[in-house]
Amino acid sequence: MLSIQIDEQEVKHILLEKLEEKIKEIDTELVFWDSKELMRRTCMSWNTIQKEFFFDPRFPKFKVGGKWYFPAQETKSFLLEWLKERR
């Protein structure tokens, strides 16, 4: 007869580590965001984004045709710095 014991805490720990790795992979897959992604990531409306930081000269943005694009990593860095400045 075979008996197997599983440490549930260790299983949860391993699962959470793997989940974090996958989330980081997915997060870094995007090279740039469009305006809808920016609104989703900031939880702000387009009007609020424009009012709060869109016209800040440090905010990285590029207009291609009629659509705005934002480099993902640069935009994240800017947003974190911008938020810290609001303290």
Score class of each variant (00 low, 15 high):
Ile49Pro: 10
Arg87Ser: 07
Glu81Lys: 09
Gly65Phe: 03
Ser3Asp: 02
Ile6Leu: 15
Trp82Gly: 03
Gln9Asp: 14
Thr42Asn: 11
Glu20Gly: 07
Lys12Ala: 14
Phe59Ala: 01
Met44Glu: 04
Ile23Pro: 01
Lys51Cys: 03
Thr48Phe: 14
Ile14Arg: 15
Arg86Tyr: 04
Lys76Tyr: 10
Met44His: 08
Arg41Asp: 02
Gln50Leu: 09
Phe53Lys: 02
Ser3Gln: 04
Ser35Ile: 03
Leu19Val: 10
Glu21Ser: 10
Gln9Thr: 09
Leu83Gln: 15
Phe70Glu: 00
Phe53Pro: 08
Trp33Ile: 01
Trp33Ala: 02
Leu15Pro: 05
Thr48Gly: 09
Gly66Arg: 13
Met39Cys: 12
Lys12Trp: 10
Gln73Pro: 00
Thr75Glu: 08
Lys12Glu: 11
Trp68Glu: 05
Pro71Lys: 12
Leu16Phe: 02
Ser3Trp: 01
Leu30Cys: 07
Lys18Met: 12
Phe70Met: 02
Glu17Thr: 02
Glu25Met: 14
Phe62Ala: 09
Ser35Cys: 04
Lys22Ile: 06
Glu81Met: 07
Leu15Asp: 07
Ser45Val: 08
Ile49Cys: 10
Phe32Arg: 01
Ile6Gln: 05
Glu20Trp: 01
Lys24Pro: 03
Leu15His: 14
Gly66Met: 06
Lys63Ile: 00
Trp68Asn: 12
Leu38Lys: 04
Val11Ser: 05
Phe54Trp: 02
Glu52Trp: 11
Lys76Ser: 05
Glu37Pro: 00
Asp7Cys: 03
Leu80Val: 04
Lys12Met: 14
Arg87Tyr: 07
Gln5Asn: 14
Ser3Cys: 05
Ser45Asn: 08
Glu25Arg: 12
Lys36Ala: 12
Ile14Cys: 13
Asp56Ile: 00
Val11Phe: 12
Lys22Met: 10
Lys61Met: 02
Phe32Cys: 08
Arg86Pro: 03
Glu25Pro: 00
Asp27Gln: 13
Lys18His: 13
Glu10Gln: 13
Ala72Leu: 01
Leu30Trp: 07
Ile14Tyr: 11
Phe62Cys: 06
Gln9Tyr: 10
Glu8Leu: 10
Ala72Pro: 01
Phe78Trp: 08
Lys12Pro: 00
Arg41Lys: 07
Leu79Met: 12
Leu2Asn: 06
Glu74Ser: 15
Lys18Tyr: 06
Pro71Asp: 11
Glu52Gln: 11
Arg40Glu: 15
Met44Arg: 11
His13Asn: 12
Phe78Thr: 05
Gln50Cys: 15
Thr42Gly: 06
Phe70Asp: 01
